[in-house]
Design a protein around this nucleic acid. Structure first.
Ligand code: SF4
Ligand code: SF4
Lengths: 147, 147
DNA sequence: ATAAATAAGATATTTAATATCTTATTTATC
DNA sequence: GATAAATAAGATATTAAATATCTTATTTAT
């Protein structure tokens, strides 16, 4: 009952892009280093973010990634659900047919309520909010080179 | 970001015991059949519930399981957390040291809030509530024998 | 003493998540 | 147009967790 690494990484990547500014092109290498995401894994993640129309990918030299929409219009929920699908805290919430008693189950109702409550909480947070306070964004210290 | 089967089964088992009544001894077979839990898996689950002092196990012929505490004093959260540990929706919530920026991370705060909100929601539901309405408890129809 | 029940530990099996590799494509620059 | 620098996309390992099952031991009513 925990966010996957892929979900966590997607959020970091988006917050970093928002921090760099709307429409600003940032290279994969820079993102991978500053947010501590394995470079190859980041490549997989941005493909999904791109398909979901949250970012734009530019190929070729000087290529990289940038936000497609203003950060105020993207919620934390959207980012997370691109990576892990619609949040449901029990299988019967998104697939009621998976359990034959779901129509009359008191526990089912609790998981439904808890799931929507969680989704609302995440939907209420925008990417803009997450990146507006310079001192409080998930960007990692630059590594000192060993050279 | 979803409850495990073990967690789901533990809840079913506890609700069934509450439905049968406080202190009433119920056999493993009966529970496994009526709540559709694989019998061997149920054995593993009750061991944990017993260690957590939520149920009492009686060995020998006529053995089985029964609630240790009144159903009103057991919350859904307790049952779930016996099986999956304390709920935290991101690794950095229960292990802040796992991420070097957790002290100043806006995203971290959201996951902390969401996690405690979820825990509160589940803590507010008692086993008694879940089993009080006869028509609305997760007990599966008896299977018709093929004999 | 017997047999019916669960206990406890070990072992498969399955699934999902994570990470990496390889080949292909795009595009700025010369 | 050729080259090289970047990402795209699909394939493949690797790892870890969850799920399920098996085996042997223990308990206890009869
Ligand atoms: S018993 Fe209730 S809570 Fe459990 S899976 Fe079925 S509908 Fe969902
Ligand atoms: S970047 Fe923030 S949200 Fe992500 S793991 Fe670190 S502290 Fe948690």
């Amino acid at each position: 009952m925990r966010l996957t690494r892929a979900g966590e990484y997607a959020v970091r990547c988006m917050v970093y892009l928002a921090y760099k500014g709307h429409g600003v092109l940032v290279s994969k290498q820079e993102i991978a280093e500053r947010t501590e995401i394995p470079s190859y894994f980041l490549a997989k993640i941005v493909q999904q973010l791109s398909k979901a129309r949250l970012i734009v990918i530019t190929q070729g030299p000087k290529g990289g990634y940038s936000l497609l929409k203003p950060a105020a219009e993207v919620s934390l929920l959207q980012i997370v659900e691109v990576m892990i699908g619609e949040i449901s805290l029990n299988e019967c919430v998104d697939r009621p047919s998976s359990c034959s008693v779901s129509k009359n189950c008191s526990v089912h109702k609790v998981w439904e309520k808890a799931s929507s409550q969680l989704r609302e909480t995440l939907a209420a947070v925008s990417l803009a909010q997450l990146s507006e306070n310079e001192s409080c964004i998930p960007i990692f210290p630059v590594r000192v080179s060993n050279a």
